[in-house]
Design a protein around this nucleic acid. Sequence first.
DNA 1: TGAAGTTGGTAAAAGCTTTTCTCAGTCAAC
DNA 2: GTTGACTGAGAAAAGCTTTTACCAACTTCA
Lengths: 320, 320
Amino acid sequence: MASAAGVSISTASKALNDTGRMGAETRERVKRIAGEIGYRPNALARGLLSKRSFTIGLLTNDTYGRFTLPVMAGISDALVDHGVSVFLCAIEDDPALAQTHVDAMLDKQVDGIIATGKRLDRRLPVDLSNLHVPVVYAFTEGTQNSVTFRSDDEQGARLAVEWLAKIGRRRIAHVTGPEDFFSVRERAGAYHQVAGHREPVLYGVWSESWGHDAVEQLWKRPGEKPDALFCGNDQIARGAVDALRERGIKVPQDVSVIGFDNWEIVAAQTRPPLTTVDMELKELGRQAGLTVLALAEGRPVEPGVRKLPCRLVVRQSCGG
Amino acid sequence: MASAAGVSISTASKALNDTGRMGAETRERVKRIAGEIGYRPNALARGLLSKRSFTIGLLTNDTYGRFTLPVMAGISDALVDHGVSVFLCAIEDDPALAQTHVDAMLDKQVDGIIATGKRLDRRLPVDLSNLHVPVVYAFTEGTQNSVTFRSDDEQGARLAVEWLAKIGRRRIAHVTGPEDFFSVRERAGAYHQVAGHREPVLYGVWSESWGHDAVEQLWKRPGEKPDALFCGNDQIARGAVDALRERGIKVPQDVSVIGFDNWEIVAAQTRPPLTTVDMELKELGRQAGLTVLALAEGRPVEPGVRKLPCRLVVRQSCGG
DNA sequence: TGAAGTTGGTAAAAGCTTTTCTCAGTCAAC
DNA sequence: GTTGACTGAGAAAAGCTTTTACCAACTTCA
């Protein structure tokens, strides 16, 4: 304890926190000695008093981390400067496990909780609506009167289709995931708005093989073929690119392909690398982090859903 | 506070913890009322006294999460039953950031730290050797006299090559990552032990395109071609499979391909899905978690490097 | 010279648990 | 009827900080 090396406990505390009245010389001396002996205040004791643990919990059901990791990076990035650490709790759609984790976080007096997931239109399997700590939802369905951050899939889809139109593509098909996903419907809506109804929307699953199969279907039909594919995610896009190559169709010369998600490991390794839409999940995490911090500090935050714009990442699968 | 609903503070505490002397009837009543009002003890106050925060820190420089996520899952899985929560701190090879995170964890009185990374033969850019909390290394280079968990890459490689031999392959080539990786050398050593020196080892980088190029190189050489490829990771394997298909060579009929890592997103989406070696990172995380807990509780743990066996995951890229 | 204000610092309380110590009451035994 | 053992429960301390209240010494002013 720093007091051993100088003055009383209270004087030491005031010296280190730049509060209270005392001689400048005393203050300096205490600070110096604290530095020398490497004194660091115990955050537990501090938290006990201040009711702030400088700790938040991140709850996710995205075991694979595809969405959670960027969100986590953004949160951590935003909060590390404020001395806030993050408990990561992966619950795998298991309500009991989720409750266990929430209870553990609450016991540890987290200042707030951020709930995130792998799907915009699904809830986590645990009720967070009546906790006495603030809760912010990021990339998962929130409750009434909560603060929710999500990507603007409509704008993202428009970005993609408008890009294809801009580089001269006219017969743009949309190959995407299961229709019961909210974001699938939203993207498809934006697609129709921009591209019209000339080409079909093919609903399927989120896999490469579906992308592959979809190309087979499209090219087996009679009549003119698409000159561009707007895919629901990068995996579908990759499957599509592979299928096109196998058919001897050149990407991007003959057909432009655009993905969604900007999942580096897929998008960058595809040949050619995929032009795709990035949902800016890190930024989403950053804002969620700052928001939960604001709520924890009692600053007012307007409830509601905040849509964050997507960004087009241009690589080589579109040409133009 | 439960005491409001019955007896004194100390009696309440003793009742809930099943300690001290008191009437069975009183104990029951306190427990019941505590349950009714949803009382949960404040872990901060408890930690202040017991010197145990039931919190550990996980430090990683693996931004992408390829290795960290399974390790994290294992740790969490092992420790959630003990009421321990995990701070995840992603430091991106940034020493200052790493120190910030370590300081924050120490302030929060973590019971221990697990260091993990993306490479067995590299250290994290921060010195953890003289902390007053236990440190366990998992999938990253540890310090003298520390406890380190790692995969047994030699055994994993042997598993792969022996499998290829068992299904009748005789000309097994090894396409792998950069030779300065320790695990690359270790796997190559095991490969030579089992397969001899008839076929070459091709060192390159950890990417699909290298797998692709390596096949080009191998098949451009004069003389007999390999009938099996043991690849250094799943991405290389995938690139190789794609290249073979483009050359009209059938996998697994003509050539067997085996990967390493069992990275689902790559291994399972390859056509055909990859047979590969799983490093059991989740199990590794689990053991690291239990070990750091043991150390935190003062139980003795033998220092040293613990190699965990790998497991062969058979899919369809080898036939046999 | 006495009153009022200023300065530099300490003592103590509060925050929530757990643990140890103490105390009043009960019962059995001599 | 007094002593000793035992029982059930509460008081208090400890764990580490921060904050408030307080005190002694010194300065300023009338």
